[in-house]
Design a protein around this nucleic acid. Structure first.
Length: 131
RNA sequence: GCGGAAGGCUGGAUGACCGCGGUCGCCGGGGCAACCCGAAGGUCGAGGAAAGUCCGGACUCCAGGAAGAUACGGUGCCGGGUAACACCCGGGCGGGGCAACCCGACGGACAGCGCCACAGAAAUGAAACCGCCGGUCGCGAAAGGUCGGGCAACCGAAACCACGCGGCAGGUAAGGGUGAAACGGUGGGGUAAGAGCCCACCGCGCCGCUGGCAACAGGGGCGGCACGGCAAGCCCCACCGGGAGCAAUGCCAAAUAGGGACCGCGCGCGCCGCCGCAAGGCGGGGCAGGGCCGCUUCUGCCCCAGCAGGUCCGGGUUGGCAGCUACAGCCGCGCAGGCAACUGCGCGGUCAGAGGAAUGGUCAUCGAUGGGGGCAACCCCGGGACAGAAUCCGGCUUACAGGCCUUCCGCGCGU
RNA sequence: GCGGGUAUGGUGAAAAGGUAUCACGAAAGCUUCCCAAGCUUCAGUUGAGGGUUCGAUUCCCUCUACCCGCU
């Protein structure tokens, strides 16, 4: 943590902890059977993958038609993506899949600071019981 | 000034930090491979409806091609515009409004079939029914006329007139509480009663004429009227249309299979070349025949002695690339033609291309406008409608806070 | 995204353009000592809005909701 390290060492950790996005339906289905925590603005699901399935932290976003029309769904997903980018890259656990689910109304309207805090508390709950 | 009509434009602004997708990227890296990824920096990054998917195309694949017939579907006043349209422009006709202007699926009901409930005499060939009218026959007779008697009041007779009832044979379509709709309407004449029976006006139909490319309009003559509505019921007429859709489709890589079953047709004639002594063999093309559009015609291709045609069945990978965005372009300006839609020419500009799908997060300043307080200056609070590209264009339809501009109409006031 | 379809009492279905019908169920009543069965009654904006027609569940447009197929 001296000066020489700080000048070059900003980017590499961010790259190694890069978030990849879930794309396959089967991944979502597996995550939906794992642990979940509900918060006012969203629901988080977390599944710890077996060894060798994939690398790094993976995250998926879901907003059903219940959230609203296309504008409302897109806005909810963007906010979820933003809090995931800010929180999971520092507090996420390697080797886990996270799925964030948008909720009607709240996901788009809650203050952004509260959303960040809620995600940290949700991660604490999910990570906590495990030793 | 108030109220209204038509058309067009706009659809929060600026900045800072942190992010996302495309593209250009010295160079570096990943994958068996096709291919892909990446740092700094540059650059681009939602809409007028991106929506609904209601029409029309482009493009791709499928079906041998073309034309026609049939079937099915669509369009429907006329003319023009366009790649095309159910769109747009202009015109006609009908309806609404004092007007500006707006609205209209607006061909045909003497080609045919069908339907018109209830009510009503009757629902479309028209006639029947009630009623009205005179004739005739029968019956009646209190009162009137008539006849007889009587000065008169009155009495009597008869059934000729008028009257009432009924029968018969006729004349009528004026009227008939309905109904959405009733074989024209109003007025006058006429008649036994009536009727386009006759006349005037209106309506309707037919035939010329004039204007117009046409839809249609104007005016003239004739017909006395025969012609109900529904075609967003079948239908007729004119015109148009093959089917499926970018999750279409093409290419590449790896892996597996390197297939199976069935159907259909057929082994006829003759020609040319080569090899051969010959028998014959090989190759080519021809006729007949057969196969390939559901039908017909024309035409083409294939088979012609076996290999071609058709149908069905089966396994694996969900990998990569293309299609993918710039030209029937679009936008701005100018000129020309046109009433206009639009067209032609010139100059300039170039406009998102993802693939579980980018265009975001936070903050600051301003801000159309709204609410509250205050005499006011001002202060506080909230703060932008509908809505997110997915192959691309041209339209239509639906949703939409507010703001700006232009033109026009009516009323009031002033000059 | 592209392409199809459906909507009628609570549920499932009918209905030549002319009074919206049937079955099950719910509720109320009659019957019974009580229950069951039976009988009677009740409840529809025909998804919404326009149009055609004298009249629309039906015919024609526009919208809404739901369902299905295609990688």
């Amino acid at each position: 943590m001296d000066g020489s390290n700080a000048s070059t060492g900003d980017a590499p950790p961010a790259v190694s902890l890069r978030l990849t996005t879930l794309t396959k339906r089967s991944d979502f289905l597996r995550a939906s059977r794992a642990k979940r925590v509900a918060m006012p603005g969203f629901i988080v699901q977390m599944r710890v993958r077996p060894e060798g399935e994939a690398e790094g932290i993976r995250v998926g976003f879901t907003c059903s038609k219940k959230v609203g029309n296309a504008v409302a769904r897109n806005r909810a997903k963007r906010r979820l993506r933003e809090i995931a980018r800010l929180v999971l890259s520092e507090a996420g656990r390697d080797g886990a899949d996270y799925v964030l689910i948008g909720r009607q109304g709240a996901t788009a309207t809650l203050p952004f600071d509260q959303m960040l805090a809620d995600l940290r508390r949700a991660l604490a709950v999910l990570h906590g019981p495990r030793k």
